[in-house]
Simulated assay, not measured.
Amino acid sequence: MQPFADEQQLQCPYCGESVEVTADPVGVSSETYVEDCPVCCRPWVVHVSREGEDVVVHLGREDD
C-alpha cells in the first residue's frame, strides 16, 4: 500500500499567502525542485527532507 502524500500549509516567500504544498512521503532523503506559487505565480525553490516517517518542506525564493 502506497503512503498518502503529506500536505503542509506554508507561506509563499514572495506574496506571503498561505499555500498548500504536497510532498510524497516516499523518496530520496533530500530533494530540491522549482514550483510556481498558485497565487502570485512567482517561482519557489522547494526543499524536501525525509527522515523516517517525517517529511519537512521548506519554501525559498528563487532569487536568494
Rank of each mutant, 00 (worst) to 15 (best):
Q2V: 11
Q2A: 11
P3D: 10
P3S: 08
F4G: 14
A5R: 05
E7T: 11
E7P: 07
E7M: 06
Q8I: 07
Q8G: 03
Q9L: 14
L10S: 05
P13W: 13
P13M: 09
Y14L: 08
C15F: 05
C15K: 03
C15R: 05
C15T: 04
G16C: 11
G16D: 11
V19Q: 01
E20L: 12
V21L: 06
T22D: 00
A23V: 03
A23H: 06
D24S: 09
D24P: 03
D24C: 02
P25T: 04
P25C: 08
V26C: 01
V26I: 14
V28A: 09
E31Y: 06
E31N: 10
E31S: 11
E31R: 12
E31Q: 13
E31T: 12
Y33L: 15
Y33H: 15
V34S: 10
V34R: 12
D36V: 03
D36E: 15
D36T: 05
C37P: 04
C37M: 09
P38F: 11
C41F: 02
P43R: 09
W44L: 04
V45Q: 13
V46F: 02
V46K: 04
H47R: 10
V48F: 13
S49A: 13
S49T: 14
E51F: 00
E51P: 01
G52V: 02
G52F: 00
E53Y: 00
E53W: 03
D54S: 15
D54F: 05
V55I: 00
V56Q: 14
V56P: 02
V56N: 13
V56H: 14
L59Y: 03
L59N: 07
L59I: 05
G60T: 07
E62V: 08
E62S: 13
D64E: 15
